[in-house]
Each structure stands twice: as C-alpha cells, then as structure tokens.
Design a protein around this nucleic acid. Structure first.
Lengths: 193, 193
DNA sequence: TCAAATCGGTGACAAATGTCCTCGTTTTCC
DNA sequence: GGAAAACGAGGACATTTGTCACCGATTTGA
C-alpha cells in the first residue's frame, strides 16, 4: 500500500506484518506540490508526518520577515513540531515542501493508540526522538564552537547528497549565515583544492 | 532528609509522602567543592543528578583546548548527559561545579525503577525532558537568527540572576562569542541607557 | 595573610561577515 | 514556448567580531 514506508519500517524495526498493516491502516497519504505547507505559524501541529519522497523543511520567521531554516526533512524522515504536537499549543514554525513530495500522516489520537498497542513501534519512536535530542545538542555545541566554514563542512558530512538538492541560500539559512558568506566559503574551498 | 529536593518535588508534582520517601531513600547526597567534576569526557554518565544548592555547568572542549559551555545548572535543576546516560556510551562532556554545591544522585537502575513504580514521578520526568527539547530547539533557532547582542539579552531574560553568579567569560562561552565581544556589548548598552 | 590565579576592561589591528548592488544563468510554471 | 521568478556569483564597502597585548582590581586557596 505504502511501499516506501513499509520497507523503511521493516528495515528499522521488528514490527510484525499484522502490526505494519495496522499502522498503515491509520495513515493518510498526501501529495504535496513544491511550496505547499503542512503547518503554518499559529496553527496546532495535529499530525505525525512521514516523508515518503521529496524534501520538506521546518523554518521560522522573525518580525522583520527573515526566514530561518531549522531542519530539512528528506525521504525516510519525519516532520513534526514537537512542542506544538505534544502540548497542543500554536506553533511558531512553518513546514513546507521544497520539492513535490509524498507524505503519510497520522492523526495524534491514532498515533498515540498505535504506540500504546505496538511496543516495537513505541521503542522505535522513542529511538527517533532520542536521536533528535542528541543531534540538537550537537548542533548547539557546533553553533557556539565552530566557524562558519566548519559548520558548512559538518553539514556536508552529516547530510551528503542534501546539498545538491536544496538551494544554496537555504543551506546558508540553515547554517545561520548569509548566502554571500556561504558563497565565499565555497569559493575559497574550490580554490584550495 | 533533603529539604531542598523535597520541597522542590512537592511543589512540582503530586507524589505522595510515601513516594517521596521512596525516591529519597535511593538518593545519595554529595557535596562538591568549586571546580570538582561529576562527569569527565570519556566516562559514562551513570547518574541522574539534582542540584540542591550551588551551580554546575556542562561544557566540552575542542582539540585545540578551548572550552565551550552548553549549559548552566543552578539549584533546583538537573544535570545529566542524556546521550551518555541513555545509551551508556562515553560522554563528550564535562560537568563540574562553579560554586561549592550540594547535589543528590540516583544510580540509573534505581532511577529507572522509581520511574516505573511512581507514575507521577515518570510524568514529571517526561515533562522536564520535553521542556529541554523545546529549549534546545529555541536555542538552535536563536543561534541562527539572532545577533550576539540579542543572544545576550535573551540570556539575561531567560536566566535572570544567573548572570550575577557566573563569570562574564563563561557567559561569553555559553553564547558562543569571545569575552571581549561580550564586554563591548555591555559597554555599548550601559552607554545607551 | 599574601602570592598566585582569576577576572574584566580596553585599545589597536586583522579577519570574518553582513549589506547592497549588479549581472548572467537556470528554473519555474502558465 | 516564453515571461517571470529564482538562483548563485562577485565586487565594494561598512560593521562586527576575533586576536593579542596590557593593566589593575578582585578572588582564591594554601
């Protein structure tokens, strides 16, 4: 039914065929066109979202209008605003598609029931959440200890292939520098090799 | 027995008197002198630690030797390296005391048992962890979107009183700037008012 | 108590980064 | 298919930040 998700979950967990079917039975498939959003600032994040294909991003704007990208979510990853989803408060973030994408969504009540009924799925979910906690701490450390060039190198290392799929000015936004700065760093690097 | 911790937990949770006694019965009190460490790089973080009085910090060093502070933990907060504690891997961080401090520690096995046996305590623990996730995301956003001065202002807002207790060069380390930069920011601000 | 370490401010200069602009190419989407 | 938008590079200049060196005041700890 959802071949990408099914092979993803089989390779990552020990859920049985029946459990997998149960999980899929609660999912809603959605196709997104480039620039289409699944969460807007001020809304409550009511779904867990799995990206089957394409790329989404999480970003936030400041009062003056500048956009700042917190995260890229390519295929085989999840998209959610944890605070809005857990606490059911209005989100500060936007989540939208950078390419035409295919996603699966579970309403919170359904997802909670699945976690409670399928221990292997709950374990897996907790593993994903933990990994995100570790990543965010790593990112905070990087933000206070690395130069712009080091952050760029870390990005390339951590997300090989992603750079080719997202515009340079969005990578700059993710890194917290201007696109001009990133352009300079790349220029200096190509000269060095 | 542990008056600071007991009043902290009573005010934050609905644990009963008996549950509180059970929790305290597993705690080990420790007094730290300034600069004394409870976790060193390369060790496994085997305890949950509550700070009854004083201040601790979590920091990490780079190869060249520079220190970068990820977090300050004053009284009524918790200290742990989540990744090392959860996954039982060697930590990249140091945790030590900035002032003479009094702490309570629970061995992981004991703490896990308490969480399983006391639902109100588990709820509370999850609340703390969630709050930390939200804070870290906020901090990542701030790191890519705010100027050094804005980060300084946010720090003062978020942790009033902490600034007075922590040396300026450590606040600079936490913010990811040099002490000279922070000195300049403060100078400019005092001139403006 | 007192020598040593820590701490914070400052000036001079260098390096990194931001801002503003133009330009040519590529991509998007009616 | 073609106009419009998005994209990335680069130059010129301003601003911010880092680096280094020095100094005096304060704190620390034996």
């Amino acid at each position: 039914m959802f071949p990408e998700f099914e092979s993803y979950l089989r390779s990552q967990t020990t859920v049985t065929r029946e459990e997998l079917q149960l999980i899929c039975s609660k999912a809603v498939e959605r196709k997104l066109r480039r620039k289409e959003a699944i969460l807007q600032e001020g809304e409550i994040c009511r779904y867990k979202t799995f990206i089957s294909s394409g790329i989404l991003r999480t970003y936030r704007t400041r009062e003056e209008g500048s956009e700042h990208i917190l995260q890229f979510m390519p295929e085989d990853t999840w998209a959610v605003d944890p605070e809005s989803y857990n606490e059911e408060v209005r989100s500060n973030y936007f989540i939208d598609a950078l390419e035409d994408s295919k996603i699966l969504q579970w309403a919170k009540a359904d997802f909670v029931a699945l976690l409670n009924n399928i221990p292997a799925f709950k374990n897996f979910s907790e593993k994903i959440i933990s990994a995100n906690i570790y990543l965010n701490r790593q990112r905070v450390f990087s933000s206070i200890s690395s130069t712009a060039e080091e952050k760029y190198d870390e990005f390339i290392q951590s997300y090989p292939g992603l750079f080719a799929r997202v515009p340079l000015h969005m990578v700059a936004s993710y890194l917290g520098v201007t696109r001009e700065t990133l352009s300079r760093i790349r220029h200096a690097q190509t000269k060095r090799d």
